[in-house]
């Protein structure tokens, strides 16, 4: 009994300290740039997501080519509450503009409100905000995820001669990208009477989860002609499971989205039938340029669309160094 009390007490103590720690971690980190020079704050949803890392690096690279533009990055680690306080911190330190890669796109109205009240220009990048219209001084730079799912599934359907069964690997349920890409895949499959979605499960955009999910489907005896994954990492997991099960290459078509270097290598090997190039550098350039323009009082369109591009065996080489 006494020990139980001790455990409870230490858990309570631990909880209070972790709150304290969390409030420290919420800070955007100091030391980047001198306080006199105005910075553009960049609030990222994740530092360790592969594609977002390309985006983040591309923003830093592009900013370094522009005189008088300094970026300061913050990592929300997927936590929207942490991201909100990071945005407030950027406002408090008089950022010239703020670029947000939203940790949760349903929370964007409160982010817009913080920036608008402080009069700081705001640029959403990659993840589309929940609002249908954006006020002056707030813009979105990104790609339309419905387009990604449509390109992916149309190409898979064409390779299947518009007949057969499809399994869908869904990313994080709360993410807009997963929802819209999945919806597009479902809409395309519904268009063709000879095609049917037989499985649909979540693998959180992760390779290992995709591998486990495909293993489970294969052992459940599901008849799958094509796997449409919301991203490349899950698609690569599916490919690994297919290979390890000894199924001949090409029997099950696999499609992904992102055109990461690993995915392009799979396309070259002929194991990944299709992926969709999301232009990280295009989005990064667009976002930084928009933030700079807004901070100088210039006008920018509310929605800046960067197109997706279909990647197949025929054209993958063109994407190797993009």
């Amino acid at each position: 009994m006494r020990e139980g009390g001790n455990v409870l007490r230490s858990v309570l103590k631990a909880a209070s300290v972790s709150v304290l720690l969390a409030s420290f971690m919420a800070g955007p980190g100091c030391g980047a740039g001198s306080p006199a020079e105005p910075v553009i704050g960049v609030a990222m949803a994740h530092f360790d997501d592969n594609w977002l890392t390309i985006l983040r690096t591309a923003m830093a690279d592009h900013a370094s080519t522009l005189p008088g533009v300094a970026l300061q990055f913050a990592d929300a680690q997927g936590d929207v509450a942490r991201q909100l306080s990071q945005i407030q911190n950027f406002v408090a330190q008089d950022a010239a503009a703020i670029i947000v890669n939203a940790a949760d796109t349903t929370a964007t109205p409160s982010m817009t409100k913080i920036a608008q009240e402080a009069g700081v220009p705001l640029v959403y990048v990659n993840r589309r905000p929940a609002e249908t219209t954006l006020p002056k001084g707030v813009v979105f730079v990104g790609s339309d995820d419905l387009e990604a799912g449509t390109l992916e599934m149309e190409e898979l359907a064409r390779l299947m001669n518009h007949r057969g069964t499809v399994a869908v690997m869904v990313g994080e349920l709360a993410s807009n990208g997963a929802q819209l890409r999945t919806k597009a895949v479902e809409d395309i499959v519904a268009k063709y009477p000879g095609m049917k979605i037989v499985e649909k499960q979540v693998a959180n955009f992760q390779r290992e989860r995709g591998l486990d999910l495909m293993n489970n489907w294969l052992t459940a005896g599901a008849e799958i002609d094509a796997v449409a994954a919301n991203n490349d990492e899950m698609a690569i997991g599916a490919i690994m499971a297919i290979q390890q099960a000894g199924i001949p290459a090409g029997k099950v078509l696999v499609g992904g989205v992102d055109a990461t270097p690993d995915a392009l290598a799979e396309v070259a090997r002929g194991t990944l039938a299709v992926t969709v190039f999301q232009d990280a550098r295009g989005q990064a350039r667009g976002a930084v340029d928009a933030a700079v323009k807004l901070s100088r009082g210039e006008a920018v369109d509310s929605f800046v669309w960067i197109p997706f591009e279909l990647v197949t065996r025929e054209n993958y080489k063109a994407f190797l160094d993009r």
């Binding site: 290992e208 591998l211 690994m240």
Partner: peptide
Amino acid sequence: TSARAASGQAGM
């Protein structure tokens, strides 16, 4: 994990 996924990732 890294051997199984043939990749090392910080989000693992």
